[in-house]
Amino acid sequence: ENVVSAPMPGKVLRVLVRVGDRVRVGQGLLVLEAMKMENEIPSPRDGVVKRILVKEGEIDDTGQPLIELG
């Protein structure tokens, strides 16, 4: 899985990584606010952040691509 998608609709509060960062499975990639709760979205695998497809403050839909890993 190279693309991390939104598991729920919500607002992107914080992006915790930058392009080029090495990430490990379970590491937080970004924080979504949904139903007044903050949810940290973890990396599904080890890899390198290739692209960040959303910006802080954006509203996303379920299934929307958020981050691409390489």
Rank of each mutant, 00 (worst) to 15 (best):
E1W: 14
E1Q: 13
E1S: 13
E1T: 14
E1L: 14
E1P: 12
N2A: 11
N2P: 06
V3H: 08
V3F: 14
V3T: 11
V4C: 06
V4H: 02
V4L: 07
V4D: 02
A6G: 04
A6E: 03
P7Q: 07
P7G: 09
P7E: 06
M8Y: 15
M8L: 09
M8C: 12
P9D: 07
P9H: 11
P9L: 09
G10L: 05
G10R: 04
K11F: 08
K11W: 07
V12Q: 00
V12M: 03
L13I: 13
L13F: 03
L13C: 07
R14K: 11
R14L: 07
R14T: 07
V15Y: 08
V15S: 00
V15G: 00
L16I: 06
L16S: 02
L16Y: 06
V17H: 00
V17R: 00
V17Q: 01
R18E: 10
R18D: 08
R18Q: 12
R18W: 05
R18L: 08
R18G: 08
R18V: 10
V19F: 04
V19I: 10
V19N: 04
V19D: 03
G20I: 03
G20M: 05
G20R: 04
G20Y: 05
D21M: 09
D21N: 04
D21F: 07
R22C: 14
R22V: 12
R22H: 13
V23F: 03
V23I: 08
V23M: 00
V23Y: 02
R24I: 11
R24Q: 10
R24E: 08
R24V: 13
R24T: 12
R24A: 09
V25P: 08
V25G: 07
V25H: 10
V25E: 12
V25C: 12
V25W: 08
G26E: 02
G26M: 04
G26D: 03
G26Y: 06
G26R: 04
G26K: 03
Q27P: 00
Q27V: 05
Q27T: 07
Q27K: 04
G28P: 15
G28L: 13
G28Q: 06
G28E: 03
G28M: 11
G28R: 07
G28D: 02
L29N: 00
L29Y: 02
L30C: 04
L30A: 04
L30D: 00
L30S: 00
V31K: 03
V31W: 04
V31M: 05
V31Q: 02
V31D: 00
V31R: 03
L32G: 00
L32E: 00
L32T: 03
E33C: 15
E33L: 15
E33A: 10
E33S: 09
E33I: 11
E33Y: 15
E33N: 04
E33R: 08
A34Q: 10
A34W: 15
M35Y: 13
M35K: 11
M35T: 07
M35L: 11
K36C: 15
K36F: 13
K36S: 14
K36I: 06
M37V: 13
M37R: 12
M37G: 12
M37C: 11
M37Q: 12
E38I: 12
E38N: 08
E38A: 10
E38S: 09
N39D: 04
E40T: 15
E40V: 15
E40H: 09
E40A: 08
I41P: 02
I41G: 01
I41C: 05
I41H: 01
P42K: 15
P42A: 12
P42R: 14
P42E: 08
S43K: 01
S43C: 09
S43H: 01
S43Y: 03
S43T: 04
P44A: 03
P44N: 05
P44Y: 03
P44R: 04
P44S: 05
P44C: 06
R45M: 14
R45T: 10
R45V: 14
R45P: 01
D46G: 08
D46L: 04
D46M: 06
D46Y: 08
D46W: 07
D46A: 10
D46C: 10
D46N: 12
G47H: 02
G47Y: 03
V48L: 08
V48N: 04
V48Q: 07
V49P: 03
V49Q: 00
V49T: 00
V49R: 01
V49H: 01
K50M: 13
K50H: 10
K50Q: 09
R51P: 03
R51F: 09
R51G: 07
I52Q: 02
L53W: 13
L53S: 03
L53V: 05
V54L: 06
V54P: 01
V54H: 04
K55L: 11
K55H: 12
K55P: 07
K55N: 10
E56F: 09
E56H: 09
E56A: 11
E56D: 08
E56C: 10
E56I: 14
G57W: 06
G57D: 05
G57K: 04
E58R: 10
E58K: 09
E58L: 10
E58M: 12
E58F: 12
I59L: 11
I59S: 09
D60H: 15
D60M: 15
D60N: 15
D61R: 14
D61F: 15
D61N: 12
D61H: 14
D61E: 13
T62P: 10
T62G: 09
T62C: 11
T62E: 13
T62A: 14
G63T: 08
G63I: 05
Q64L: 08
Q64H: 13
P65Y: 06
P65G: 09
P65N: 06
L66C: 04
L66E: 00
L66Q: 03
L66T: 02
L66I: 07
I67V: 10
I67Y: 02
E68D: 05
E68V: 15
E68R: 05
E68L: 14
E68H: 09
E68Q: 08
E68K: 05
L69E: 01
L69I: 12
L69V: 08
L69R: 01
L69Q: 02
G70R: 12
G70P: 02
G70E: 15
G70H: 13
